[in-house]
Amino acid sequence: MKSLLLEVYRRPLGRASLFVLIALYLGALFAGFLATQPVNSQDLAHTYHPPTPIVWHDGGLAVPDYRVVDKSGPRYERTGEYHRLRLLAPGFEYRLLGLLPLQRHLVQPVDPSAKVYLLGSDSTGRCVFSRLVYGSRVSLLIGLVGITITLFLGLLVGGLSGYFGGRIDFFAMRGVEFLMAIPSLYLLLALRSVLAPRFNSDQMFVVIVIILSLIGWAGAARVLRGMSLSLRRRQFVLAAESMGQSPLRILRLHILPNLASYLLVAATLSIPGYILGEAALSFLGLGIAEPASSWGLMLSQAQNIKIFMLNFWWLLTPGVAMFVTVIAFNLLGDVLRDIVDPRMKTQ
């Protein structure tokens, strides 16, 4: 395990994706510290505010001041004034890792009434950057939790049916095929409407994870069944059996460790599916709901034609974040696969 990480680190692509992912997850963990404003503090006087660049002004960090020139647009222009910024300054209260109440933030304006929108504001004047870092919690966590449940189910069903074969195998695989035959988006929508008529966003998160895992495990089960079937025929399993080991011990000690490398690669490569799945649900208005924040939900706001016509490009940044995350996971998965199975290496 340690040597695997080292091997990933030695490859440029692996190292880059590892750093990106670590940065993203740290960002999600310390979202409160990074955010400049609470996740849903609205300011209807500052809707669609453009991103405020951080500049060096008068011997300190500062953001330019803006004023509205056209309310219907709305359009802003700089006044030429600047608001002073302070690093590690006190601001709104949040809980670090959900436990420790704190007030320190990475940057805060000296004047509390000054507006800092690092990535602009949305249709109700909320800070896009703050919502982005808070929303990353949902998107990043959902992949990890989802893949854990999926692989657990896949391993349980696939591993056991491959190992024991016969009738167990037959019925398990027909069940899996049945599940795979249902178009997944409709299954997703159907499960969503059955499972969660009215939930708050924490409960909704759990529901989404369950729905996505229920859909995803079938494919994993089939692959794992095939692998455990072929391992079952290997002589070391017969040797273990001839030493008098029980089937469960053989599964745990001989089959599972031989599946581990595949599991690791499959997990890394399928996490993006969960991130995109959550985004799709939230985009359709069936996932995380306002006032909580998630990348898919933020993107659904950007559907508005006004965004494109008036060039409020900063509302598309959740899409960029999602893109970076997905690419990083895919590259890491590719690197892992190349290490674990060099024959699969793409030329």
Binding site: R234, Q235, F236, A240, H254, P257, N258
Partner: peptide
């Protein structure tokens, strides 16, 4: 058994 290389589990 006949084939020692496949009678041993490669990961231990």
């Amino acid at each position: 058994f006949q084939e020692p290389s496949s009678s041993l589990n490669p990961v231990f």
